[in-house]
Write a protein that binds this DNA or RNA. Structure first.
Length: 403
RNA sequence: GUGGACGUAGUUCAGUUGGUAGAGCACCUGUUUGUGGCACAGGUUGUCGCGGGUUCGAGCCCCGUCGUCCACCCCA
């Protein structure tokens, strides 16, 4: 027996229904906000991710499905969605047009990691990317949109926000932080010492108790924001306050991808295990330029579908469609023209085996049909069908044409 | 990559100090050859993850291996 690869899952029945319900809901809402669908390749040149996600990130450093294809190209299965969308945006030369563009996408992402709760090697994201809008109103709008999606799916969440600053304030802050971390280097844990070199802001997030105490006095990025970033962040919090969206400013919130700047946010749930981020995103005003496009401000997010699968409250399932069956062999073929006609607008289940009455009733119930239509000897002879409404329990015998 | 737990019917699991497998659910068939969900009565299902070893004998003990889960790292 061949099983799916480690960290990859098949979805059927309730699970696949949940999956499509999530996509449908998110899609519907994104469209209301002016987003249109973009489909980009799963396989991209490795260089795309190295340049956008960043060589220093774990994603690029050790988690990519990277290989050489038969033509000798260095390629990767996409580990996230933004890079491909930005590349497509530039490939289509949309960066040369002074028009705002908004795209939503969904699909599989691949990261070679050890699977655990809420973490798979092939997982799915629904995401949006808004290009050409520098206003913090757009950051706010995107956060609002995600809240709306989660509300409609019946998912509770906590929102954390932060500002990562820009090319003016971030380097200034980083310098100060590294200096302050270097002072207490000796006392920090092994991981932290490694992080000072790779991603110093992560040090602030260390779970180690001793580190935490030591880091309490470390410089905060919030205090270093420049004249542009600071008012923007204050504006964002004011807008959220006004909209009644509760949030927490988490000055240690760093996104794992290098391209984020200014607004960064994460939606978390405390009901799903250690991998608690259910959506994340932020502003990435420099990425288009980074990938050889014209400088274009942009902001986006992604929702982890698998992370919210078990949190989604599904609408009640209703009985739907018609079950058709015959109780004598000769009547079976009579069902097909009827089914073809009804399938123009209804869901129809046809049982090909002639069976007893009771057996058909059970079958209709199991198919969760609203109506059970049967043809027995009498009905065959009279050109009629017997129909029962499984909800109201009403039943009647009518001419085939009249049904 | 590191650490821990666990692999027995479709599924959830039980299996006593080693004596060649069991329960609930699900499924199928019946309970007046024309009335579903409920009830009742029957019935099907397993190379006990795989490979070695110890033993007269292994689901149980030992070694290896593969896989799953959970956590760390990191992230959606």
């Amino acid at each position: 027996m061949i099983n799916p690869l480690r960290g990859m899952k098949d979805l059927t029945f309730e699970e696949s229904q949940r999956f499509t319900h999530i996509i449908d809901t998110a899609t519907r809402i994104a469209q209301r906000y002016g987003y249109s669908y973009i489909e980009t390749p799963i396989l991209e040149e490795t260089a795309l991710f190295k340049r956008s996600v960043g060589e220093s990130s774990d994603i690029v450093g050790k988690e990519m499905y990277q290989f050489e294809d038969k033509g000798g190209n260095d390629v990767c299965m996409r580990p996230e969605g933004t890079a491909g969308v930005v590349r497509a945006f530039i490939s289509a030369k949309l960066d040369r047009q002074p028009v705002k563009q908004k795209f939503y996408y969904y699909g599989p992402m691949f990261r070679y990691e050890r699977p655990q709760k809420g973490r798979l090697r092939e997982f799915h994201q629904f995401g949006c990317e808004s290009f050409g809008e520098a206003s913090v109103y757009e950051d706010f709008t995107i956060i609002t949109m995600i809240s709306q999606i989660f509300n409609e799916l019946g998912i509770g969440f906590d929102l954390q926000i932060n500002s990562l600053g820009c090319k003016v304030c971030m380097p200034r802050y980083k310098e100060n932080l590294i200096a302050s971390l270097t002072d207490i280097k000796e006392e920090l844990c092994e991981d932290c010492n490694r992080r000072i070199g790779t991603n110093p802001i992560r040090v602030l997030d260390c779970k180690n108790e001793k580190c935490r105490l030591l880091l309490a006095e470390s410089p905060k990025l919030i205090d270093y924001l420049c004249e542009e970033c600071d008012p923007d962040f204050k504006k964002l919090t004011a807008l959220l306050d006004k909209a009644g969206i509760s949030y927490e400013v988490n000055s240690n919130l760093v996104r794992g991808l290098d391209y984020y700047g200014k607004t960064a946010f994460e939606f978390v749930s405390n009901e799903i295990g250690a991998q608690s981020a259910i959506a994340g995103g932020g502003r990435y005003d420099r990425l288009v330029e980074f990938l050889d496009g014209k400088p274009t401000p942009a902001v986006g997010f992604a929702i982890g579908i698998e992370r919210i699968m078990e949190l989604v409250q599904m609408p009640e399932v209703q009985r739907e469609g018609i079950y058709m069956g015959a109780m004598t062999e000769e009547a079976v073929e009579v069902l097909f023209p009827l089914a073809a006609e009804k399938r123009k607008e209804s869901k129809v289940t046809v049982e090909y085996n002639s069976k007893g009455f009771k057996s058909h009733m059970k079958g209709a119930d199991k198919a969760n049909a609203k109506y059970c239509l049967l043809i027995g000897e009498d009905e065959l002879k009279n050109g009629t069908v017997w129909v029962k409404d499984l909800e109201s329990k009403e039943e009647k015998t009518v001419l085939r044409e009249a049904f």
